[in-house]
Amino acid sequence: MYSFTNGIRQGIRNIFKNGLFSLASIGTITACLFLFGVFYCMVVNFQHIFSEVETTVGVTVFFEEGTGEDRIKEIQTMIEEREEVNEVHYTSAEEAWKLYKEKAFPEGDNEVLTNLDNDNPLAESASLEVYLNDAGAQKELVDYISAIPDVRKVNASESVANSFVSFGRLLGYVSMAIIVILLAVAIFLISNTVRVGIDVRRDEITIMKYLGATDFFVRAPFLVEGAIIGLIGSLIPLAAMFFLYREIVKFVTEHFSALSSLLHFLPVKDIFIVLIPATLIIGLGIGLIGSYITLIRRVRV
């Protein structure tokens, strides 16, 4: 029990004793986790917006001449059963003609066209519009549909789908790389802070060892020091992110109203339900790993 309370008491004392080093470590962890938070918000919001856009990226399927409505419905069911498919919409030849008329003559009073109603020029233009859950799976789906007998043509806007996927991946990789570098810097700084603490208390540690203190008894204060630095370093960016996220969302929504139909931000709750535990765990982890690295090298009974 004394080991535990002594660890906490001495750990807190260490932080104040090495004030400047502690501040530097807290600052780096704060910067690291703040960036982590920013990237996390960007990635999840991007994914959210992306998933909404994805469902509007469609594939249009046309059929061979003479393919009956029953066969088309059968193919529709086959496509609907696939995992990556969100929705399949059937446009009959009549609907296609009606849509064409509305588009070509918005006033809708052209008699010539009305006379053609009984001899639909788009008789072979029945189609299926397929909307995806996952734009990344578009190529696979197009291959699958193209291979179905009676399918004449599959129209897909591959470039849109591909650029969405590549941008998502690029953002993920860049953010991972920056976060990993910052994590390494933070661990290095914490291990230095703890090293200074060990040097300051070298005599005390020597005495403890001679008196028969265990590794845990000697190391506990330094682990507590690292953990507290890590936790403070994670609470500061969390508070900053909490305030800034709301303000930025508000600012973008108010000042870029043209984009408001495209940009649907996730609510604060949805972001922080993951960000709070993730940041605290990473902060604590950095603190403990940073101190442990130094301790196993420098404090042995």
């Binding site: 060892k209 001679y210 008196l211 028969g212 203190a213 265990t214 590794d215 042995r300 009974v301």
Partner: peptide, 10 residues
């Protein structure tokens, strides 16, 4: 063993 040293020193 290393973990037995503290007890020995006591």
């Amino acid at each position: 063993r290393r973990d037995q040293i503290p007890k020995f020193r006591r």
